[in-house]
Computed example of a mutant assay.
Amino acid sequence: MADDVAPCTASGYLDPSYWDGRFGKEEHYEWFKDFSHFRHLLAPLLSPSLSVLEVGCGNSRLGEELLREGVTGGVTCIDLSPVAVQRMRDRLAEQGTSGVDVVVADMLDLPFESESFDLVIEKGTMDVLFVDSGDPWNPNPTTVDNVTKMLEGIHKVLKPGGKFVSITFGQPHFRRRFFEAPEFTWSVEWNTFGDGFHYFFYILQKGKRSPESNSHQVTLPAVPSFNMLHEELESEDYIFCTNVDEL
Rank of each mutant, 00 (worst) to 15 (best):
A2T: 08
D4G: 00
C8I: 05
Y13W: 10
S17H: 12
G24A: 15
E30C: 08
S36M: 06
P44T: 11
L45I: 01
L46P: 08
L50V: 05
S51D: 06
S51R: 15
V52K: 10
G56V: 10
C57M: 10
C57W: 00
S60C: 14
G63V: 10
G63M: 05
G63D: 05
E65P: 08
V75N: 08
C77L: 13
D79M: 09
A84P: 11
V85K: 06
M88E: 11
A93Y: 00
A93H: 01
A93T: 06
A93F: 02
Q95F: 02
D101I: 05
V104H: 07
A105R: 08
L108H: 10
F112A: 13
E113G: 15
D118Y: 00
D118I: 02
D118H: 14
I121T: 06
E122W: 00
D127E: 09
N138A: 15
N140S: 03
P141D: 10
V144A: 04
N146S: 06
V147S: 03
M150A: 14
M150H: 11
E152S: 14
F164V: 02
F164K: 03
T168K: 04
G170P: 11
H173I: 10
R175T: 14
A181R: 13
T185I: 04
W186E: 10
E189G: 13
F193S: 01
G194Y: 07
Y199D: 07
F200I: 15
Y202F: 15
I203T: 15
L204A: 04
L204S: 07
K208Y: 09
R209H: 07
P211D: 09
E212K: 12
S213F: 07
S215R: 06
Q217I: 08
T219M: 01
P221A: 03
S225Q: 08
F226L: 12
F226C: 02
L233F: 12
E234Q: 09
D237S: 13
F240E: 01
N243V: 14
L247I: 11
L247C: 04
